[in-house]
Amino acid sequence: MPRIAFYPGSFDPVTNGHLDILGRALGLTDRVVVGVGAHVGKAPLFSVEERIEMLRLCGAPLAAKSGATLEVISFQGLVVEAAAAVGSTILIRGVRDGADFDYEMQMAGMNAALDATLQTVFLPAAPAFRPISATLVRQIAAMGGDVGAFVAPEVARRLAARSA
């Protein structure tokens, strides 16, 4: 039976931290489905389609290196429902610090209450990626700062174009 993981998030924009977690998730499973959340009421910098494109582009080399399959989709609604729809029994969550861990533990508990077959796997961010957040990357880029250390070159290019 293939091990299918679901890695949900907003990925607005895709950061090196996201890619770190994705690469390690690909190393643990046969298939990772990245779910780009399309949340009503949020005003993202990049459209769902753009975020999917960036994840496919940046994630393809990671999938090739691991030998696992990568799929990137959009979803609305509950994470547990999206995970079930793709046949996943593993939910991947990255944690940078204690605050992330506390929040993610609450989410894992609620998700387990909604679907006991879905197991949450926490992957700690590598030390170099712990300070990176998509929110901070967006803010730095909006003020004309160099985000090249925090995102892939293609993402940096797109951020620069948005900020120009």
Rank of each mutant, 00 (worst) to 15 (best):
G67R: 11
D102W: 01
P124V: 07
R158T: 11
A43Q: 15
V147M: 06
R31G: 11
G27T: 12
R130W: 13
A160C: 08
A113E: 09
L57H: 14
P2T: 10
L136D: 11
V151P: 02
I52R: 11
S163F: 01
P124K: 13
F150D: 00
V72L: 06
Q139P: 03
L114A: 15
A38Y: 04
H18G: 05
P2G: 01
M110C: 00
G77M: 10
S74N: 11
E53C: 04
A112V: 14
E49T: 07
E49D: 15
A128M: 08
G23I: 02
R93L: 07
R138Y: 14
A99Q: 12
G109A: 14
A84V: 02
R158C: 07
P8M: 00
M54P: 04
F46D: 12
R24I: 01
G94C: 06
G109F: 06
Q119H: 09
P13T: 09
A164P: 05
I140Q: 01
Y7V: 11
R138M: 05
R138T: 07
Q106A: 12
V72K: 10
E49C: 07
G37D: 10
L70V: 07
I21C: 04
V95K: 04
F150S: 08
F129D: 07
F11L: 09
T89H: 08
A164G: 12
N16S: 04
L28N: 02
L70K: 04
D97G: 13
F75W: 12
R93Q: 05
V34P: 02
L114D: 04
A116V: 09
V33M: 09
D30N: 03
Q106H: 12
Y7R: 10
L123R: 13
G35S: 09
G37F: 10
D97M: 09
R31I: 12
G109E: 14
A160M: 00
A142W: 02
I4K: 03
R56L: 05
T69M: 01
